[in-house]
Design a protein around this nucleic acid. Sequence first.
DNA 1: CTTACTGTATTAGCACACTAATACACTTGA
DNA 2: TCAAGTGTATTAGTGTGCTAATACAGTAAG
Lengths: 126, 126
Amino acid sequence: MFDEIDARSPIPLYDQIAARIRLAVAAGDLEEGQALPSVRQLAARLRINPATVVQAYRALAAEGFVEMRQGSGTYVRGVSADRRQRAREDQAQRLARGVLAEAARLGIAGEDVARAVQRQLGTERR
Amino acid sequence: MFDEIDARSPIPLYDQIAARIRLAVAAGDLEEGQALPSVRQLAARLRINPATVVQAYRALAAEGFVEMRQGSGTYVRGVSADRRQRAREDQAQRLARGVLAEAARLGIAGEDVARAVQRQLGTERR
DNA sequence: CTTACTGTATTAGCACACTAATACACTTGA
DNA sequence: TCAAGTGTATTAGTGTGCTAATACAGTAAG
């Protein structure tokens, strides 16, 4: 699950780790109550510093995906399906707001962006 | 036109400057062949370093918005309407690709993003 | 209780992007 | 020709985010 973590990527390590786990939780590969590897275990496995793993776990905890219990471990947090959907929509809204702001900065109409997104979705399925 | 440039903004100065000019060109406020302020003039007016203005102009030149002529000045470049539209669509595609990649990292479906963009566009017109 | 594991907190090193400083080369017009 | 304006190039300073190092504090099981 963590095989594709790459220290030379421009994407921060903690971000890559968090992304992996987010996807695993979203896909149901990690179930409620299940323990994640300890920060030291995962750090050793990836040959990186424990603090970096902590940063990833902390981000996930802030998003409500996991719960960190001092002295015990980090566990997948159960959330109802509709609440999870709600969170996804909020995130999507934030992303949309960001990309539209960026487009405005570049002098590009929101409609052009919307069209481009639709087009990307279309070509992706081929 | 450059009144809203803010050194304390998280957005880089050169980026803010370039954005202003891009919008002015796109809106037709700056016409073909028209000279922009010299790098020193604009730098003095904004109380920043000339090299920062250069960075903004260079970005615009790379995008084909302006042309820099050593010893002479920086001039708005004329581009045909359809070529400009083409450039806008390319930019939009790049933005779409980026936001969808980000969404994937977060475990969010592209459809959710598309819906969020549509919704933003709707609420913006009220 | 003690041991061996958990997460927590603080500090430091490092890289990279942004901005500034300074010297250079070209153009224009008197 | 030359003076005063233009953009060009290289180098240096600065701030911020990422990663690492190290010491601290809680939990759980023998």
